[in-house]
């Protein structure tokens, strides 16, 4: 069974009576364990697609089934629960709460999941250790470098053990060295069987994936496996 399946998805933004068609009939299937890069020029609709796939926004028309269930039938509270339990997010601008500690940031999804205090601290610490920031647990998020922030964001995305991780330009705000660390991490997660959907306009990020979906003007232009996959840990990464 496919994990994600969308059919003829349409998203129209209305702003002051002007309609913008961001997605114009997109159909796509993503299976468990895939690493999909969604590419396209800015304004092509790739981020919109990711947001709808990530249940952060609703489509105007078309169908979206996640794990075999139609997403539009879910209430807002049910969507919140799906985001909490099944999905993880990594944003270009990190979106950490700057005044909270690294630990408090990573713990956040577990708080909303209602995990007990002891367990969530253990799990969050394990994730922080995993992304190599064990010595930064108590730091305020605002005190970290960009690369460290994004690693915290990855730890936060992972802490609920989600089915899919959605990343929107995860290396967009990072230098090549930090970007390499983040991408290497994403590849490692995929190797462990986690499904990844990454939006990027950068070729080398797309080359790290297993499949690229190219969007032009709200439609899928091409959808193909990556021919020469770059393994970041081995091949390195130059911006």
């Amino acid at each position: 069974m496919s994990l994600i399946e969308i059919k003829k998805l349409i998203k129209i933004y209305s702003d002051d009576g002007v309609d913008t068609r961001a997605l114009d009939g997109v159909s796509l299937t993503i299976n468990d364990g895939e690493f999909v890069a969604i590419t396209g020029a800015s304004g092509s609709g790739k981020s919109t697609l990711l947001q709808i796939l990530g249940c952060l926004d609703r489509s105007t028309d078309g169908s979206y089934t996640f794990e075999g269930k139609e997403v539009s039938s879910y209430s807002d509270a049910e969507l919140a629960r799906i985001r909490n339990e099944k999905l993880g997010f990594v944003f270009q601008s990190f979106n950490l709460l700057p005044r909270l500690s690294v630990l408090d940031n990573v713990v956040l999804p577990l708080v909303y999941a209602g995990v007990s205090k002891k367990e969530r601290v253990e799990r969050a610490e394990a994730m922080i250790d995993l992304v190599g920031l064990a010595d930064r647990r108590g730091y305020q998020a605002s005190q970290l470098s960009g690369g460290q922030k994004q690693r915290v964001a990855i730890a936060r995305a992972l802490v609920n053990n989600p089915k899919v991780i959605f990343a929107d330009e995860p290396t967009g705000n990072l230098d090549s060295k930090s970007g390499a660390v983040v991408l290497e991490f994403l590849q490692m997660l995929n190797d462990q069987g986690r499904t990844l959907v990454v939006v990027t306009h950068e070729l080398y990020v797309a080359e790290a994936a297993r499949r690229t979906v190219h969007i032009v003007d709200g439609r899928i232009d091409s959808d193909q496996p990556v021919a020469h996959r770059r393994i970041i840990a081995k091949d390195g990464f130059i911006k």
């Binding site: 629960r81 985001r83 936060r156």
Partner: peptide, 12 residues
């Protein structure tokens, strides 16, 4: 917005 993305409901 972030809290909602991480699973908070409007009620929370």
């Amino acid at each position: 917005g972030l809290r909602k993305a991480l699973g908070a409901t409007s009620g929370n």
